[in-house]
Design a protein around this nucleic acid. Structure first.
Lengths: 184, 184
DNA sequence: TAGGCCATGTAACCGGTTACATGATTAG
DNA sequence: CTAATCATGTAACCGGTTACATGGCCTA
């Protein structure tokens, strides 16, 4: 899923500006499963306007800069539909924390404990964000997606809380033993 | 986490070749939370050898091409430790499926059902992979990480199985009603 | 005999981020 | 007076992927 299609998806739900799209995808209720920055959103919007997939109008505001409000066209909707029809890409998940956890035996116990604390905070923050966003959004799918996210995050959180000691034990015991590599 | 550090992490667990590293990170037991391809692994390994973070030796094999086996040096271990000590990057999660789900009301019900089926298959396949990998690996952290993954994936799977009908209903009802956008 | 696995590597490309430029307004 | 928010945009950079080149061996 490239930024282009992402913008179409959001504009298909209603008119918006580049600024608002960025907020949605990197802080708002879309931010849990997509991301994009100004540097990719604005050029994408401009190019799509040239191609006739979206149109824009200037909106003046008092005390604030002008907004450039984009609307999706029927061509844009067609392109978006086409994107929806073909099989979705697989989820992408990258976790530095799990890499650390995998290498627990090589880690300094304190550094590991710190990493666990941070992961715990991160998971809690994500859960809180979902709660905050779901309230303020009225898309039909949003609640469903919110609950999906809660299910995953809370089971991760729960696992981490109840099993962190086991992981920390691995780091401690490895530290107690003489390092194997040195023995070779 | 860049490819460089990823290679160091793996070499810190034991000697390996570029070919093996790629297998581990994109098909093996690391593939659930990291990824990298030949085009980034080989250059990273070469550069790190120049910098003295790793060393290599040729190993001849009968009936197969030579292997270039890399070992981490003490300089490499130092760099890796440094990377472990500083706060880990947050998890990165991108999901085209959740984007579709969010836009359920705009989707063709059949396309949505297909997407759900595919997501279900994907989650099952990931779970099966974990089971397969955990058996063949002896790293201390691997079981812990495997269980973490199972916790997340199985709750996602479970949620999807028990709640897919609700999502499908959103798509169907939106289709039944006249499209709102057209009414504007 | 075709295709897949082993194994290493490179070059072109690309989708994106980071950092910057600009500038008014409002809140602390 | 400072920092943040609103708002749009660009240019340089970068980390990575894709696709290709090479070539022997093994399996269907």
């Amino acid at each position: 899923m490239n930024v282009r299609t992402l913008c179409l998806a959001i504009l298909n739900c209603g008119d918006s500006t580049g600024y608002e799209i960025r907020k949605l995808v990197s802080e708002g209720h879309f931010s849990h499963f997509v991301d994009a920055s100004y540097g990719s959103i604005y050029p994408a919007l401009n190019r799509m306007e040239q191609e006739g997939l979206v149109v824009s109008r200037q909106e003046e505001q008092e005390g604030k800069p002008n907004r450039k409000v984009y609307s999706i066209t029927s061509d844009g909707q067609a392109e978006f539909s086409a994107a929806l029809t073909k099989p979705a890409q697989k989820d992408l998940f990258k976790s530095e924390f799990l890499l650390l956890a995998m290498c627990a035996e090589l880690m300094d116990p304190e550094a590991l404990s710190r990493a666990i604390d941070e992961q715990l905070e991160y998971l809690k923050a994500e859960l809180a964000l979902i709660d905050a966003h779901v309230e303020e959004v009225d898309m039909a799918g949003a609640n469903w997606v919110g609950d999906y996210g809660r299910a995953c995050l809370s089971s991760a959180l729960n696992y981490l809380l109840t099993n962190r000691a086991d992981l920390e034990e691995i780091a401690k015991q490895a530290r107690a033993k003489p390092v194997l590599i040195a023995a070779e």
